[in-house]
């Protein structure tokens, strides 16, 4: 697995898109910090970008890599290696290279700005951690979709749809149901609805550390008690972990029956 990981990582790290992605974050980081001079505000803006962009890029890269390396994968499949190792190697190769682009791209401007001397270091690290989780989650989801769809166009379409659903539509439905179910106590419902969307969960996780904890308190004790504590932080990270593990598990299950 690590051999495959090594080579697909090398391959991706040298691809043009990795550079573009890296450069994008680099420029973004510098612009936010040096035009604003406000680390907190920069982190909030970054949050907005990371929770939307990381899933999108992860999805697109995941699907693209799968379909583009189909023939090469066939060559690998004829080698004496287990199938699951090939795909796990490729999966980790993409996820790690994307995460690295993000961490370096954002890390360099923040370190240059003097992050280590700032109190925002914890928030920033959490932001990167959540970004990394989103990469791993959405590449895994993209692989799932690609494995289930032989047709490239269809697979691509489904992947974008999934992103659109989780990034936008889900929240729309969520908000509408909150407004319509206004008369009922909605604390638990909101809490659970958040758990079922990794983007929402990531967003809440960061917001808790930034500005939302008191606002959540406003909506009732359930939220505050859950998200306001270290236990809540650990549980949320645990659920993000599940969001990685379950799709990865399904990839492996799917592989056992898959014809190439």
């Amino acid at each position: 697995m690590f051999k495959i990981l090594k080579y697909s990582f090398f391959d991706l790290m040298r691809s043009r898109w990795s550079y573009v992605y890296f450069a994008f974050y680099l420029v973004l980081g510098f612009v936010l910090l040096f035009l604003n001079n406000d680390v907190d505000k920069a982190i909030i803006t970054l949050l907005n970008i990371i929770i939307v962009l990381t899933p999108l890029i992860g999805t697109i890269f995941g699907v693209m890599y799968y379909y583009n390396s189909k023939e090469f994968t066939e060559l690998l499949l004829a080698q004496p290696i287990k199938r699951s190792k090939i795909f796990m190697g490729q999966y980790l190769g993409i996820s790690i290279s994307l995460t690295l682009s993000m961490i370096l791209g954002l890390g360099i401007p923040f370190v240059a700005y003097g992050l280590f001397r700032s109190a925002a270091i914890f928030n920033f690290s959490l932001l990167l951690l959540v970004g990394a989780f989103l990469n791993f989650i959405f590449v895994a989801l993209a692989f799932n979709i690609a494995l289930s769809n032989e047709n490239k166009i269809k697979g691509f379409g489904f992947a974008i749809l999934m992103w659109l659903f989780l990034a936008v539509i889900y929240d729309g439905v969520f908000l509408i149901s909150l407004v319509f179910l206004n008369e009922y106590p909605l604390d638990k419902f909101s809490l659970i609805a958040t758990m079922f969307n990794p983007i929402d969960l990531s967003r809440i996780l960061i917001l808790l550390k930034l500005d939302i904890s008191a606002l959540l308190g406003y909506t009732g004790a359930v939220f505050k008690n859950f998200f306001g504590t270290n236990m809540g932080l650990l549980t949320s990270l645990g659920i993000l972990m599940l969001w990685v593990i379950i799709p990865v598990w399904r990839i492996n299950r799917k592989l056992r029956k898959k014809d190439f």
Binding site: I169, V179, N182
Partner: peptide, 20 residues
């Protein structure tokens, strides 16, 4: 305005849908 009517909606703060 929405949060005023439905306080629980605050959990959607800074989501893309809300921005839209």
């Amino acid at each position: 305005y929405v949060v005023n009517k439905t306080p629980e909606a605050i959990v959607l703060l800074r989501s893309l849908f809300v921005d839209i």
